[in-house]
């Protein structure tokens, strides 16, 4: 009788344990695209956030040798209309990009020069203008956009779970994503807020298949910054310069428009 009870107990325990294990695996492995989209939606809907990005990227030289360059960025986004990016590149170049809802400014601390344009609008609009019109550089800009989810839905072709990575600060789902133009891997916490810990983008169609790698840390969904942190005040002796795109495509002068 005791043996029967014990067998039943063992069987029940095995079933319970098996169920827990199966559900845990199922939770991790089922619909990995849902985890990706949840991350994209979370970031797109966040009212504000800040993070530190330690990045590196490959540049395939003319000789064919692949060289990695590194940089660190402290990104703060306050929606709807402010962002601040502090930049330190591996060669010592330090800079700043600020948007206060009115003016978009890039500043080189190393050379003490800055360029600024008036661009009233939202963070999304400012990012578009910064990239498309001013031809400036903002790695991972898509992740700062409110349309991150829509862009992921449009681009992503497949998502697979590689493994649960336990070497990060919190166990992360390591996802392998194939998009229309690039492949990328992203590490998203298995539990809690889906704030990515790492992303690796592979430009599979480019010579040498270079990668852009970024580690995210210090996520903060309530960064404490004041309005003045987004407004640029030129330091002493700072010289104002133009964006190259402004020089190459000078605005049409008032007299040549044929108006009036």
């Amino acid at each position: 009788m005791n043996l029967k009870i014990n067998l039943r107990g063992l069987l029940a325990a095995a079933l319970v344990w098996g169920g827990i294990a199966t559900s845990a695996i199922a939770e991790s492995s089922s619909a990995p695209d849902a985890h990706l989209m949840r991350m994209a939606e979370f970031l797109g809907r966040a009212g504000m956030f800040s993070t530190t990005i330690q990045a590196g990227f490959d540049v395939v030289q003319a000789s064919g040798q692949k060289i990695e360059f590194r940089e660190r960025r402290q990104v703060t986004v306050i929606r709807p209309n402010r962002f601040r990016v502090e930049i330190e590149e591996s060669d010592g170049e330090k800079g700043l990009v600020l948007y206060d809802g009115q003016a978009l400014t890039a500043y080189s601390e190393t050379q003490n020069v800055y360029a600024s344009v008036e661009k009233p609008g939202t963070t999304d609009e400012a990012l578009v203008y910064f990239l498309r019109d001013l031809k400036m550089r903002m790695p991972l800009a898509l992740m700062f956009s409110t349309t991150f989810l829509q862009e992921m839905e449009r681009r992503v072709q497949s998502v697979e779970l590689v493994e649960v990575d336990v070497t990060t600060d919190i166990a992360c789902l390591h996802l392998a994503v194939r998009a229309d133009q690039v492949d990328f891997q992203v590490w998203i916490p298995e539990t809690g807020d889906p704030l990515p810990r790492r992303i690796v983008i592979t430009y599979r169609g480019e010579k040498g298949q270079p990668q852009f790698r970024a580690d995210f840390s210090n996520w903060n969904l309530a960064p404490q910054l004041s309005d003045s942190d987004f407004k640029f005040t030129p330091p002493d002796a700072a010289e104002r310069i133009e964006f190259l795109s402004e020089i190459r495509t000078p605005p049409v002068s008032e007299g040549s428009g044929g108006g009036g």
Partner: peptide
């Protein structure tokens, strides 16, 4: 050494376009 290449932009798209 050039610092500029397809991966330096950190974009989710590619210059070659695929």
């Amino acid at each position: 050494y050039s610092r500029v290449g397809p991966a330096s932009g950190g974009s989710f798209s590619s210059r070659s376009g695929g």
